[in-house]
Design a protein around this nucleic acid. Structure first.
Lengths: 179, 179
DNA sequence: TATAGCATGTAATTAGTTACATGATTAA
DNA sequence: TTAATCATGTAACTAATTACATGCTATA
């Protein structure tokens, strides 16, 4: 059984109805982008690997003269996805937020620049919250109407989390201004 | 000017008083671990690069018969760090949380397993909150006594953020149980 | 006397990004 | 007719992890 989580992103997107590599990447852009981004250069080789491992099957489905490969999850693929969803394996979450690293090291800056930095971080967090509410939640709620509800739950979770972060940083900015 | 953020983690840790590669990695383990983890295999080559670029200087400072390299930030290094702290460049934050990817794809599971998954995610988030409050906040508050206050601010931010996530997921678990 | 921690690194591998290359179709 | 979008991929590079290798020192 494959261990890369990217495998399951691809398998899961196929299951949600994105049948080409192009569609999988585009679907990730409007759903998993903020907690699991991907790229064409990851998706296409991954699809090829999954086909070799018989977790998906490929068929030609050209649109006019434009070639197109449509993929479908096999029984084995479905089982692998379910096994991964149920597995208790907890890879340590990775945040890697450059902004927080800056915050951590902000003592090197004069007070004025510290405040400006916190302001920028708050704005960035708010901007992401807005993007999720504007671009991601609506798409996910559309999906929810056909019974697939976890994308919408995840989108709301992400928006609330970034919103909380933005509130927290705005409060900090206020405290720095008064200190 | 180097563009890898890991450069600034190393530079910043040196500035905070960790003078060897070993000490930098250990300091990251009790401070930046949850938003910017690192490893020996990253820190040592990075120090060598920084020395070549004259952003740090190296001197031998053996402890008894045990060899040890002590590094110090140069004027150029200090300037590079400050420039990076002030730069508005906003690398898109990367979450890559396997657990949230599972949540996103949870529609593939029967209701009982969905609830178990959300329960596990909530526990994981709570566990990280506890680790930050137990292991990271106290160390950072020690630093704050000598005037370096942003590590403690960052630690509290992390703890509050994971705490919020845990609360949110616990609430979701309750809703799934009643639905 | 042996285990945990200090200390430094390299090698091999895997993962991920950026840039490049190509060409069809559709809507303004 | 031209710009945007659909569609598929490869090549080169950078980043990061895991495993390996070595040896000292303090303490239980």
């Amino acid at each position: 059984m494959p261990v890369r989580s990217s495998t399951y992103l691809v398998l899961g997107m196929l299951r949600l109805g994105a049948s080409s590599g192009y569609a999988i990447k585009k679907a990730a852009d409007v759903s998993t982008r903020f907690f699991w981004a991907t790229s064409f250069a990851q998706v296409y080789p991954e699809l090829a690997r999954l086909e070799r491992e018989r977790l998906v099957t490929r068929r030609d489905e050209p649109r006019g003269a434009r070639r197109r490969s449509a993929y479908q999850v096999t029984g084995d693929g479905e089982r692998a996805l379910l096994a991964w969803l149920r597995s208790p394996r907890q890879a340590p979450p990775q945040f890697r937020v450059e902004g927080i690293l800056r915050l951590f090291l902000a003592d090197a800056l004069p007070a004025e620049d510290q405040r400006a930095l916190v302001r920028r971080l708050a704005d960035q967090a708010r901007g992401i919250e807005d993007q999720i509410r504007g671009e991601i939640v609506p798409v996910a709620e559309e999906l929810a109407r056909s019974g697939t509800r976890f994308p919408a739950i995840t989108a709301r979770f992400g928006a609330d989390l970034f919103g909380f972060g933005a509130d927290w940083l705005e409060r900090l900015e206020g405290e720095l201004a008064c200190g």
